[in-house]
Write a protein that binds this DNA or RNA. Structure first.
Lengths: 207, 207
DNA sequence: CTAGTTGTGTACCGGTCAGTAAAGATGTGG
DNA sequence: CCACATCTTTACTGACCGGTACACAACTAG
């Protein structure tokens, strides 16, 4: 009977001390959604604790201060709702990959509960307290553009993109369109409206 | 001697009471620049009064509360640094007009002292207190898109744009590109980088 | 049982926010 | 000189910000 406890060598039973009364993963998801809707500075600790269903000291014990919590939410964002770029770019044909990327972006950005893009949302506006956060978000956006660039360069080497086209310029262009779409979405643009933008934007594709 | 007073029927001499010790126009310009850099919520009254060189009660007496001041700064923005769209769209050839519009946007957005676009900057992120401001900014952005649309429709009626092209979609597309450029600029993109985006973006122009 | 460890809830901290009251300063009109 | 109107200055208000001290609850270890 007690053998089960003996068999498990590491952390056999429970951690000791009073057990946590909430699901940390769930709470982090709630926090992500608040940050998504309100941005880093716009989300107050009261907003966060209320949405997460926990008290302030529990938040600090489990996630650290507001900035640390935001970075953890960002990681969750990248691995969850914002993981679509890397998936889309796996498409065999470059043009299909980019179109898929844009359409998934439109889909995510027009989700009624989380309009816009967290990375764009947080980076603009707001005071001086969040300079570090702004830099972090700029970095993440650059990472997205780099992924597009790598995909286009690969396409060029595979003959999937004309040699005279410029992957660098194209990557920056599509990144710009995605960010513009995020602004449109935050302004209330519908998914179908963004789809039409995408159809127009894709007309630059080199032949 | 006193005839001068009688001749001038309206507000002949000076207003009465202690004269204002600052130039209201200058002060409003300073306020505009603060809002431009920090957004509506990011700009604190201390930031504003410091930049304007006046005390808080003077600000309230001359411009009303923060929201009223912001709207006045917005008007000044539209008539000043953001008046270029209407000027650019006066170009005789539609394609030239749009290109000029985009290039002027890039120029303004990459001004080191006021990076990005006030209209985009203020609309995203931040808390619930500024819902009215957000709506106002969305309205102004829609006004910009409408101006582009009207110009393109005119071009179509003049044979300057193919009949089968869609002015509505094109207007929204170019608006999206401009907003995307604002995000790029806020992230530190240079003017020449935005110029390359523009060259790519213009390849959608219908032939 | 007791001792030790960890999470929870309340109530608070200093700082900053937007906005204002009150008194003195500086002008006009008589 | 006087009354009156307007602006400037200082100092304040109440609300909210992010962050935390502290007492207590809930668990493990022995």
């Amino acid at each position: 009977m007690k053998s089960t406890k003996i068999m498990k060598k590491k952390k056999p039973s429970r951690p000791m001390g009073r057990p946590r009364a909430f699901d940390a993963d769930r709470a982090l998801d709630r926090a992500l959604h608040i940050f998504w809707r309100k941005g880093y500075e716009g989300a107050t600790l009261s907003d966060l604790t209320k949405a997460m269903g926990i008290n302030r000291p529990s938040l600090y014990a489990a996630f650290g201060d507001k900035e640390t919590l935001f970075r953890k939410a960002l990681d969750r964002y990248s691995e969850g709702p914002a993981s679509y770029p890397f998936e889309a770019l796996k498409e065999a044909i470059a043009r299909t990959a980019i179109e898929k990327l844009l359409r998934r972006a439109a889909e995510v950005q027009t989700n009624p509960s989380t309009p816009g893009c967290l990375t764009v949302h947080g980076a603009l506006a707001c005071g001086d307290t969040s300079t570090a956060i702004r830099k972090e978000l700029i970095l993440r956006r650059e990472r997205g553009e780099a992924a597009i660039f790598q995909r286009l360069k690969r396409a060029q080497s595979e003959g999937d993109l004309p040699p005279r086209s410029n992957p660098n310029d194209l990557a920056r262009y599509f990144t710009t369109v995605i960010h513009g779409m995020a602004v449109q979405a935050a302004s209330g643009a519908s998914r179908s409206e963004l789809e039409r933008v995408i159809q127009t934007a894709l007309r630059v594709w080199p032949k």
